[in-house]
Design a protein around this nucleic acid. Structure first.
Length: 103
DNA sequence: CCTGTGATTGTTTTC
DNA sequence: GAAAACAATCACAGG
């Protein structure tokens, strides 16, 4: 059951701005790792494709892979997520109490 | 307790 | 250098 038709319901607002004091950016996404590898392949199989094209093709290819293929990327994403946990932790520690920051 | 929301992440190409 | 399509995410917070 699709919790809610969330997603990009049409809100092409520019990039986001930070809102947290130390903004513990989250971890990367599987697509990021996948793109890192496919970007070369996609551009190679699609010579001459413009920005919009390659971008789309990349996405199509992403899902074109099998879950197993995404596995390595998901794994990286999961690993990266852990990385974020670290930031979040530091953010948490500092956000909460703090030993000395107000000089 | 459960939910969804928002914020974020990195790539590519083009000028 | 910046901007948009492309996709995943998923930790955080609130009623």
């Amino acid at each position: 059951m699709p919790k809610a038709a969330k997603g990009r319901s049409g809100k092409p607002e520019k990039k986001r701005a930070k809102k947290d004091p130390n903004a513990p950016k989250r971890g990367l996404s599987a697509y990021m790792f996948f793109a890192n590898e496919q970007r070369e392949n996609v551009r190679e199989e699609n010579p001459g494709v413009s920005f919009g094209q390659v971008g789309k093709i990349l996405g199509e290819r992403w899902k074109a892979l099998s879950e197993k293929q995404r596995a390595p990327y998901e794994a990286k994403a999961a690993a990266d997520k852990k990385r974020y946990e670290d930031e979040k932790q530091a953010y948490n520690a500092q956000a909460d109490g703090d030993d000395d920051e107000s000089s």
